[in-house]
Simulated assay, not measured.
Amino acid sequence: MAIVLGPNRYGKAEIRVVRVERDGVVHRIKDLNVSVSLSGAMDEVHLTGDNAAVLTTDTQKNTVFAFAKKYGIGEIEDFGLLLARHFVDSQPTIHHARVEIREYTWDRISGPHSFIRDGGEIRTALVRSDGSDGPESVVSGLTDLVLLNSTGSEFHGFAEDEYTTLAPTDDRILATAVTAWWRHRGTAASWGESYRAARAGLLAGFAETHSLSLQQTLYEMGRRVLDGQPGLCEVRMSMPNKHHFLVDLEPFGMDNDNEVYFAADRPYGLIEGSVLTDDAPPVPPHWH
């Protein structure tokens, strides 16, 4: 009985690339998750470890970034065809290329560079009661409200020590996925109207704040929620910093003027805090 190599393929999975198209002050976002898989005359790499036929997965990743800069990103079908054809046409050992792309679309919040990601957040509610004659509380909220500013964010003047490598910046992408809870003063309200107003306050605080830190943005978002609703007394938020790093395109002879980014999913900064009115009633300790 002979043992033989069967069908096989290899590639780079989930390449997160973000392209900011800047038309003056008006920006457009193309946010993709690209997975490449190649197959062809690859027997020797499996059987003997000879890598001569292998186009490295790191090269595949770099090609996605370079093509995002060189050709831009229009329709994802066209971008996928461009990549797939390139891999097959440029390498004699590659006979088949499979490119899978997921596009995360963004809607404009307000102004030229503030966006909310399509897909929708999840509305939440937490009700506590010690019975009809005891204390009660209602906490409303949402989770997975994904927001992005393509400019209008800075981060500098931070503490540094011998392990600091982060460079200060006066222009960066600021993106986050908001989880927020807001505490009502009572247990009777127009809950739908209150939710819509709180959500609008979060969006306005994010879009209209020139941010020097995500902490500052968190406070402004909470302040907007409370300022517009006297029936609320506290907002708590958890906001991961969804880092976007500029891709170094110099090895390919290209400049990168804040256009092509790598969207990193981890590790991430996690900013949490609360904003409350000075007369907010305390929450019973066992209710936390």
Rank of each mutant, 00 (worst) to 15 (best):
A2R: 08
L5I: 08
P7A: 05
P7S: 11
G11Q: 11
K12S: 08
A13I: 10
R19T: 09
R19F: 02
R22H: 14
V25H: 11
V26C: 12
H27L: 02
H27N: 13
L32C: 06
S35I: 08
S35L: 03
S39G: 11
G40A: 09
G40N: 07
M42Q: 11
E44K: 10
H46W: 06
G49N: 10
G49V: 06
G49M: 07
D50K: 12
T56P: 15
T56I: 15
T57R: 13
T57Y: 14
T57S: 15
T59R: 14
T59Q: 14
T59Y: 15
N62S: 14
A68R: 03
K69M: 09
L82T: 07
L83S: 03
A84W: 02
F87I: 10
F87T: 12
V88E: 06
D89H: 12
Q91E: 13
P92I: 08
I94Y: 09
E100L: 11
I101H: 03
R102Q: 07
Y104E: 10
T105D: 07
W106I: 00
P112Y: 09
H113S: 08
H113G: 02
R117H: 06
G120F: 02
E121S: 02
I122V: 14
R123M: 07
L126Q: 09
L126M: 12
R128A: 04
S129E: 05
D130V: 04
D130N: 13
S132I: 08
D133W: 12
P135E: 05
G141F: 00
G141P: 00
T143E: 15
D144G: 12
V146Q: 02
S150K: 00
G152Y: 03
S153F: 15
E154A: 13
E154P: 01
E154C: 13
F155I: 11
F155Y: 15
H156W: 10
A159Y: 04
E160P: 00
D161K: 03
T165P: 03
T165I: 10
T165H: 09
D170G: 08
R172I: 01
L174R: 00
T176M: 12
T179G: 02
A180Y: 00
A180W: 00
R183T: 07
R185Y: 04
G186K: 06
T187F: 06
A188S: 04
R196Y: 13
R196A: 15
A197H: 11
R199N: 13
L202D: 01
L203Y: 10
G205Q: 01
A207N: 10
T209H: 13
S211Q: 14
L212G: 12
S213V: 10
S213D: 05
M221K: 00
G222R: 00
R223G: 02
R236T: 00
R236Q: 01
K242L: 14
K242F: 01
D248T: 14
G253W: 15
G253P: 01
M254P: 10
M254R: 15
M254G: 06
N258T: 08
N258G: 14
E259K: 09
V260K: 07
V260T: 05
A263M: 10
A264G: 06
R266V: 06
P267E: 04
P267H: 05
E272M: 15
S274Q: 03
D279E: 15
D279H: 08
P282F: 05
P284W: 03
P285C: 05
